[in-house]
């Protein structure tokens, strides 16, 4: 997994709350293996018309949208299904950080496994950041994971909280399964106890 440390890049803002994972990547694309590259399906039905042509008004089809590496969203971003393809689509398009007041819980977990940093900011801060991004299309936003800060295009700075474990994984890019397998003795000991205490399982 690609580590995440700092990032300064163009951002886009989405004002609608409850953007669900079906909108991020429609279910009809989920039969593809991951290797196909899910970036092409990101927001597919908002990005392309029925004939597969780009819809010019959609922000990701505009120059600063294509270059965006950061997305600032409203409440409950990526609610809905467990499809990890929602993360693959964002990451495949080039998005490395998503900032919102709240996220769908499963998406939030999935994001870290793929080097996508999801940042929760208080609703008022996220709204201010969205407004600043919309007012300065293409202006850079900076994310500093070690310092846990975001700087908006208007210079406003926001501090964010992050689980220490996730921060470690993102900074080092390490594989969580490898980490857990190092605990094989703990797992075996638990299984022995489980066999004795709840043998019907």
């Amino acid at each position: 997994m690609e580590p995440f440390v700092t990032l300064t890049a163009s951002a886009v803002a989405f004002d609608l709350p409850n953007i669900d994972t079906d909108r991020i990547v429609p279910a009809r694309f989920l039969h593809h293996p991951r290797a196909v590259g899910f970036g092409q399906f990101l927001f597919h039905d908002l990005r392309f018309d029925a004939d597969g042509r780009e819809i010019p008004g959609f922000v990701l089809n505009q120059a600063h949208g294509r270059a965006a590496r950061i997305l600032v969203a409203a409440d409950n971003f990526a609610c809905g299904s467990s499809r990890e393809a929602a993360v693959w689509a964002l990451a495949g398009f080039g998005i490395r950080a998503v900032i919102a007041p709240s996220f769908g819980d499963i998406f939030f977990e999935n994001s870290f496994k793929n080097g996508l940093l999801t940042i929760r900011l208080p609703a008022a801060d996220a709204a201010r950041l969205r407004a600043a991004v919309a007012a300065h299309p293409g202006a850079p936003v900076s994310v500093d994971l070690p310092a846990q800060t975001v700087h908006g295009p208007d210079g406003a700075a926001f501090r964010f909280e992050i689980d220490g474990f996730k921060k470690e994984c993102l900074l080092s890019g390490q594989d969580e399964i490898g980490l857990t397998l190092a605990r094989a003795d703990d797992i075996a000991a638990f299984e022995a106890r489980r066999r004795a205490e709840t043998p019907w399982l």
């Binding site: 998406f107 474990f165 399964i177 605990r183």
Partner: peptide, 18 residues
């Protein structure tokens, strides 16, 4: 609870989840 593909792989390999 529902999990994503990376977590499914994690459970298959370790029978655990963080």
């Amino acid at each position: 609870f529902g999990i994503g593909a990376s977590e499914v792989a994690h459970v298959l390999a370790t029978q655990t989840l963080w």
